[in-house]
Structure formats: structure tokens, C-alpha cells
């Protein structure tokens, strides 16, 4: 028996396209999303739910920022790096963002090599992605340490509105946790690819369904999502 959850088993290909295709799919039996495997559907729905979490975090941040009586700390000063004798506003964060975006690039490569069943390159690309992710988290730790050493605390800070520290640590921390969890999963996945689990279709632990190279793509969905969320956090914290 082959794996049922795989995308390989296809529905008939001569379905109508566009809107009428959508209606057709949803009024059909068996599957509403034709050719979408269970796990991919699950990841998309999870990401939708997670989107709500991050949106609500950011909305709360905006509310706090707009209703506070004390001025909000100036982003280009608070987040600047002092190197030599000059201040580089947003330098660190620019590097962090660059690193994270690059990791999305390597993730795409991993997915691509995965579908070509190139075990070694897939594993390497996953490792590189994990490494870039870990670098991001490392730089975030550095940033946190720097802010803490400058007196930023969850309950207050010398630069302005006391909510700044709490909101900043909470939201970047929540995002950093997402990245860290992603890094762990990337490492596990790299190991599995390297061992050839996806060629042998060894069942995954969480899903108890047969492993496939599609899992790399689903990991990629999560990773790109975390990346996209960062873009919003970046815009709202560092550019506003």
C-alpha cells in the first residue's frame, strides 16, 4: 500500500479552471483541495491560525503605542550599533533581516533538491538554512543583551514609554521562539534526509504517516511564514 496522504495520487486533471473549478472542487466528494496532501493542508490551516496570533500581537502593540502618554523611544537611536566612533542606525537589524531572508533562499533550494531526490544537497541546504536561522537567533540574543545592558526592562526603560521593553521582548521573543523551533525541526529533517528516511518512506514521528520529500516543502512553508512575519515586525518596530 502506498501512502494515502501523498500528493502523488491525483484527481482527474480535466477539471475546470478558475472560479468554477473552485466551486467544482468544493462540491465534489473526498477532498476539497484536490492534490493537496493532508499534511500540507494542515500546515496551511495552522499558519492561518498563527497569522491571527501575530496580527493580534501587532495590533496590541499599536494600541499600546498609540495610547501611551510618554513618547515612544526613537527607533533609529535605540536600535543603532556603535562601532568605532560612529553610530550606525539599524545596522544590526539590517544584517539580521538579510540573514533571515537569505535563509528563505536556501530553504527554496532545499525544497528544489528534495524533489529531485538529491539527498546530499537537500541535507546540506537544510543545514545551511538551520545555520542561518541560528545566526539570526544569536544576533537577536546579542540585541537583547545590548538593550538590557542599556537599561531596557519589561517594566520600563530610560528612553521613553515603559511599554516599549515589554512589547519588544514579548513580540520578538515570540517570533524568536518560532525561529528556534524551526531550527530544531530543520536539523531533525536534515538528519532524516541524510539518513534517507524519505527515500525509504520511514514514518514520521509526529504524523505517523510515511515520510516523503514533500515534508521538506511543508517545512519550507513554515519557514517562509516565519520570515514573512519578521518583515512585519521589522516594519512596525524598526521603521515606525
Amino acid at each position: 500500500m502506498t501512502d494515502t496522504s501523498s500528493a502523488k495520487v491525483t484527481a482527474s486533471d480535466n477539471r475546470p479552471k478558475g472560479l468554477s473549478g473552485l466551486v467544482e472542487d468544493w462540491s465534489s466528494d473526498q477532498r476539497a483541495f484536490k492534490n493537496v496532501s493532508w499534511r500540507k493542508a494542515m500546515m496551511w490551516i495552522f499558519l492561518l491560525s498563527d497569522t491571527f496570533i501575530f496580527s493580534i500581537f501587532l495590533l496590541s502593540y499599536m494600541t499600546a503605542r498609540m495610547s501611551t502618554k510618554v513618547g515612544w523611544p526613537n527607533a533609529s537611536e535605540v536600535f543603532s550599533l556603535h562601532i568605532g566612533h560612529t553610530n550606525f542606525p539599524l545596522l544590526l537589524i539590517a544584517i539580521m533581516t538579510f540573514v533571515l531572508i537569505s535563509s528563505s533562499g536556501t530553504m527554496v533550494l532545499a525544497v528544489n533538491y528534495g524533489y529531485r531526490k538529491n539527498r546530499n544537497l537537500t541535507a546540506i541546504m537544510l543545514l545551511v538554512t538551520a545555520l542561518l536561522g541560528a545566526t539570526f537567533v544569536g544576533m537577536q540574543i546579542f540585541e537583547w543583551t545590548k538593550l538590557i545592558s542599556e537599561g531596557v526592562r519589561p517594566w520600563g526603560n530610560p528612553m521613553g514609554a515603559p511599554q516599549f521593553g515589554g512589547i519588544f521582548f514579548m513580540i520578538t521573543g515570540f517570533h524568536g521562539t518560532h525561529v528556534s523551533i524551526g531550527v530544531i525541526f530543520l536539523l531533525v529533517m536534515a538528519l532524516k534526509v541524510w539518513r534517507g528516511d524519505y527515500d525509504k518512506q520511514t514514518p514520521g514521528y509526529f504524523t505517523s504517516r510515511k515520510g516523503e520529500y514533500e515534508c521538506v516543502e511543508i517545512m519550507g512553508l513554515y519557514w517562509h511564514f516565519v520570515d514573512l512575519v519578521w518583515v512585519f515586525i521589522f516594519a512596525f518596530f524598526y521603521l515606525w
Binding site: 493580534i56 496590541s60 519589561p154 517594566w155 515603559p162 515589554g166 512589547i167 514579548m170
Partner: peptide, 25 residues
């Protein structure tokens, strides 16, 4: 539930911060 519980989750996290770290959300 998948779309509404996120609001409660965020609220609980923020209140935990208020209670434990003395933030003022």
C-alpha cells in the same frame, strides 16, 4: 476556535507579563 483562540492566547500571555514582569499592557 482556530481563529478566536489566538486572541485569548495573546491576552493570557500579556497578562502573565503584567503579573510576573510588571509590564503595563
Amino acid at each position: 476556535a482556530l481563529l478566536a483562540f489566538p486572541a485569548l492566547l495573546v491576552a493570557t500571555v500579556m497578562m502573565l507579563f503584567d503579573r510576573l514582569l510588571e509590564t503595563s499592557f
